[in-house]
């Protein structure tokens, strides 16, 4: 119990200090671009009403979810295929390195040309493409790095291709897949916002831009804070899923390190 309180104290401590500093530092501010934190917090409930959350936040999160989901499925499927086949790896390596080096936001205007600025499609493609690379490349490494003795064991017990994939290859690669997915999630949140900055009319990112353009500065700040809170929430959900699915890995590592 005390350990839990201590952990909770550490987790909340620094944000509390920062918020206090912001609160007092901005208390007497008259600069319209730096409104006092008290003003921002007062504005929050009136800005983010249920109607607005349904209209702006949910669609953004839905697009993030769809794009991220596509990237996870595609990344694991392609990554496993590339990881298992030396031929495929030799063929695809230079191309993968090239695409990885292209910053995903650059793709926004290009994708918009094909898929449109305002619809869902362009935004989902942007998010999915940006999230794909870290998952794909980590899956390739995870599959390649599988313990050879496990491969021998699977072969000597005649495990079918399908069983080898489901019971040996994918679980063995899963720690790396999760590493890739965690990177992809933060890229996804960034792309969720960026994809709405150009010409979108609804969505969290679009709302922030509209507040800024109409000089609703405290409202703009509430949008930024909400975005941060969503980021924290997504990371927490991810952690819960990871702890569940990688329990064996985390437990094994703990024992190996003698903790």
């Amino acid at each position: 119990m005390t350990r839990f309180l201590k952990a909770a104290g550490y987790a909340v401590g620094l944000p509390a200090i920062l918020l206090t500093a912001w609160w007092f530092g901005s208390a007497s501010s008259t600069d319209p671009f730096w409104p006092p934190l008290s003003t921002i917090i007062e504005t929050f409930p009136t800005t983010w009403t249920w109607d607005r959350i349904v209209a702006d936040v949910f669609p953004s999160l839905a697009r993030l979810g769809i794009g991220f989901g596509i990237a996870v499925v595609l990344g694991i499927v392609l990554g496993t295929a590339i990881g298992l086949s030396p031929t495929l790896r030799a063929l695809s390596e230079p191309v993968l390195e090239f695409f990885r080096a292209v910053p995903p936001p650059v793709l926004v205007p290009i994708i918009a040309l094909f898929a449109g600025y305002t619809g869902w499609l362009g935004k989902i493609i942007t998010i999915a493409l940006g999230c794909l690379w870290p998952i794909l490349l980590n899956t390739v490494e995870g599959v390649r790095g599988l313990e050879p003795v496990l491969g021998d064991t699977a072969r000597s017990y005649h495990l079918s291709r399908w069983r080898r994939l489901v019971f040996v290859v994918l679980p063995g690669a899963s720690p790396r897949i999760f590493t890739g997915a965690r990177q992809a999630l933060s890229i996804g949140v960034i792309l969720m916002v960026i994809s709405e900055l150009f010409g979108a009319n609804r969505g969290l990112g679009a709302a922030i831009v509209q507040f800024q353009r109409s000089f609703a500065i405290p409202q703009m700040w509430t949008g930024v804070i909400l975005l941060g809170l969503i980021g924290v929430l997504l990371a927490a959900v991810f952690k819960v899923v990871e702890n569940r699915m990688l329990a064996w890995y985390l437990g094994q590592r703990q024992i190996e390190r003698g903790e």
Binding site: E147, V149, L150, S156, Y157, H158, F167, G172, Q252
Partner: peptide, 30 residues
């Protein structure tokens, strides 16, 4: 068929993501 191998590296020949029971059971599923 009909041959089973016990490898030197026991720590690396068992599937760490499965329980003891699941490890023993997997070849039987096949």
């Amino acid at each position: 068929q009909g041959m089973a191998v016990v490898f030197q590296e026991y720590g690396r020949s068992l599937f760490p993501w499965m329980t003891v029971r699941q490890n023993v059971e997997l070849p039987l599923k096949e």
